[in-house]
Amino acid sequence: MRFVLSVFLGALALAVVASPASAQSGSATLDAVKARGYLMCGVSDGLAGFSNPDAQGNWSGLDVDFCRAIAAAIFDDPNAVRFTPSTAKERFTALQSGEFDLLSRNTTWTMQRDIALGFTFAGIIYYDGQGFIVRGAEGTTSALQLNGATVCTQSGTTTELNIADYFTANNMTYELLTFEKEAEALQAYDEGRCDAYTTDQSGLYAARLEMRNADEHIILPEIISKEPLGPLVRQGDDRWADIVRWVLFAQINAEELGVTSANVGEMTGSSNPEIRRLLGVEGEFGASMGLTNDWAVRIIRHMGNYGEMFERNVGEGSILKIARGINALWSKGGLQYAPPVR
């Protein structure tokens, strides 16, 4: 019922309160964030590696760190963020009704969300795809052996559509059990109600750690969909979307140029013009966005470049130990590529 209530309140807010997004000079959202003194960021209700609170309520993860990077760019303080967890079902209504300034919540960029829901996706922070986890003892080695399977998943995501497409395309039957919350979906799978559990592959690594006996479960090799995950904002404030987009680009460019949290201080003295522009030694790039010119220095000093953020949260430095794979830089055979600062 909490979901229905929040959606209802969101709908009511749309009906009663929200005035049409006005086109002020600059970014209304940025002005509001500065006046408020902190950033409001929508995250997941708990997904290891992406946004996960610990027992003390401290959030960690890739999506969380990205919000901190934006706060660092604006306030030079990565802790000037308030995180609001939202379920897969609630997230869009919550963003639409202004509960947060951006949604950084392992959310797949789809055409329908971009256009019909009235959002702007600011970039792709993680290239993901939907996969399956099964009990290894049952001898399943490929998703094509899942004919007749019962599959558990969480509702409110693209997975419900992807799995319908995949099983139809491969002439297989299946039964999908969609749970409101991930915790119950995982528990039902772990109890044996389902043959497989499906979600984005990055989520499967996190899910495996939740199982009673993690070693019994294997992640099948097939990726059945494209799931480009990225931060998104409400449509109508293009300048704000630009800021979110360029914070991500700055982190990717920094990795490519070898600027890390450890060496960013000395890098400001670099003679490389690309580095000098990125770090604000040359040009007025930060000021043109309504930030300070050392915006990228702030981001990298506090949160590191993209590679550092990846390794710390989902890569080798984390419990998930996901390989960079297609999330490596374009120059290293991956897909991460950022336009130049110039």
Partner: peptide, 21 residues
């Protein structure tokens, strides 16, 4: 919805809402 039984709220005010927005 909590235990994946597809009732009206789960199917329509849940999944359908999410797919159409």
């Amino acid at each position: 919805a909590a235990i994946a039984f597809p009732d009206l709220v789960h199917v329509f005010a849940g999944t359908a809402l999410n797919q159409t927005g």
